[in-house]
């Protein structure tokens, strides 16, 4: 028994699940620093539509990405009920605007299925795979390309 548990633990990941519209997504819990309520952001000039602007996170300037818009889903004006997940992506700290955080789930790699062909290119850029939890479908997101490096990429 003792030599089975570590193997299982090594393969298992903790993920944080959240909701955008009716869909559920999740990201690795290790990349999420904190979760906070929506506060109005300062818009940036000539920023892509999914960049909601910047907010003050204890003295740091935090860019806010509307994750729904970034994934090409329908988007609505954020309210106080919306949530910002502060994530660490490739050396930067970025706020991800989502509708609500729902769950923390444990997952082993083999439970993940490849993204079906039906998804759009935009979705397939960010969705690494999908899996089922209690009959719900959850998409596993890769955050690496969420924030564009340069203006050229943003366009």
């Amino acid at each position: 028994m003792s030599d089975i548990v570590p193997t299982a633990a090594a393969a298992a990941r903790e993920l944080i699940a959240f909701r955008i519209g009716r869909q559920e997504f999740c990201v690795d819990i290790m990349s999420v620093r904190e979760i906070r309520g929506w506060t109005p952001a300062t818009p940036l000039p000539r920023a892509p539509g999914y960049m909601k602007g910047v907010i003050n996170l204890r003295g740091a300037v935090l860019p806010i990405v509307d994750l729904g818009a970034r994934l090409g889903l329908s988007t609505s004006e954020p309210t106080a009920r919306h949530v910002i997940m502060v994530a660490h992506i490739g050396g930067r700290t970025v706020g991800l605007l989502v509708d609500a955080v729902s769950d923390i789930i444990q997952l082993t790699e083999d439970a993940v299925q490849p993204t079906p062909d039906v998804a759009s290119d935009q979705v397939r850029t960010f969705v690494k795979g999908i899996f089922a939890v209690d009959g719900r479908m959850i998409s596993l997101l890769e955050l690496e390309w969420i924030v564009p490096e340069s203006e050229a990429e943003a366009a």
Partner: peptide, 13 residues
């Protein structure tokens, strides 16, 4: 405060 730390340079800013 730098914008580039977490985002990137923005023209005009």
């Amino acid at each position: 405060k730098s914008l580039e730390t977490n985002y990137r340079q923005v023209e005009g800013v």
